[in-house]
């Protein structure tokens, strides 16, 4: 690239003036181009808001048909849950917001590929957000920011106590409680905080090999507990 000579216009002096931002919370801007079109779509009285009775699966199906109201409803109902997940992994609001933005763009593009036979819509959304958040921190963004990251709090008992919302959560809790304390702790730290083998070994001052084998045995234990017959992979027990 050094052999390419830049065009002369790239060498213009740096402009000193700055963008003049609108006043914060300026409602005129908030309703301005280009978003007002979108807000008009969303506040269209011909679209009754019966979102409380609509499942996430149904909203995903409507996203696949390019219904912007469905994406907005999905965002309203899932963004706090998903942002919490992304924030826990990235530990930085800006990165968590980037992860969620990328994830929702992804959801809009890939909604048609959601398969209810393979799991719930919430689980599918969780997976997309987690992979995006993990990608961002693996790119090194978590390290290069120069931020002091908040310490990870060890709240394993509380975390387990929150797994009560559904039959799936209750089954997972029962199976996690059936693991050795070490394996349970490693699996939960890995999933909730997005720690790699290496990070887990450092954090728990355990040998890397021990961490790796404990996690594989923990995963095998969970699978055996959730699906005792082992014949219906893909279906939850």
């Amino acid at each position: 690239m050094r052999t390419l000579s830049p065009s002369a216009a790239c060498l213009l002096p740096h402009p000193r003036s700055r963008y003049s931002p609108p006043r914060p919370r300026n409602r005129g801007f908030a309703r301005g181009f280009p978003f007002f079109v979108f807000e008009a779509v969303l506040t269209d009285p011909s679209q009754p808001d019966n979102s409380a009775s609509v499942s996430a699966e149904h909203l995903l199906a409507r996203c696949a048909e390019r219904d912007p109201v469905a994406l907005r409803q999905l965002y309203e109902r899932q963004s706090s849950r998903l942002y919490g997940i992304a924030l826990r992994i990235t530990r930085q609001p800006a990165l968590a917001a980037d992860a969620l933005q990328d994830a929702f763009v992804n959801v809009w593009q890939k909604a048609a590929s959601f398969d209810p036979e393979r799991g719930s819509a919430e689980g599918w959304l969780t997976g997309i957000v987690r992979f995006r958040a993990l990608d961002l921190i693996r790119l090194g963004s978590r390290e290069i920011s120069g931020l002091e990251l908040p310490e990870i709090e060890d709240d394993e008992p509380n975390a387990l106590a929150r797994l009560v919302g559904s039959a799936e959560a209750a089954a997972l809790r029962r199976c996690l409680e059936g693991l050795d304390a070490d394996k349970r702790r490693l699996v939960m730290l890995a999933f909730l905080d997005g720690l790699t083998h290496q990070e887990l070994a450092q954090r728990l001052t355990m040998p890397l090999g021990t961490v790796k084998s404990a996690i594989r045995r923990g995963l095998a234990g969970l699978r055996g507990c959730l699906e005792p017959d082992g014949s219906d992979r893909g279906q939850r027990a």
């Binding site: 919490g84 997940i85 393979r118 387990l160 797994l163 999933f191 969970l222």
Partner: peptide, 11 residues
């Protein structure tokens, strides 16, 4: 993904 996703309810 389906097996582990319910764990996210802990967050």
């Amino acid at each position: 993904q389906a097996r582990l996703a319910p764990l996210a309810a802990a967050v």
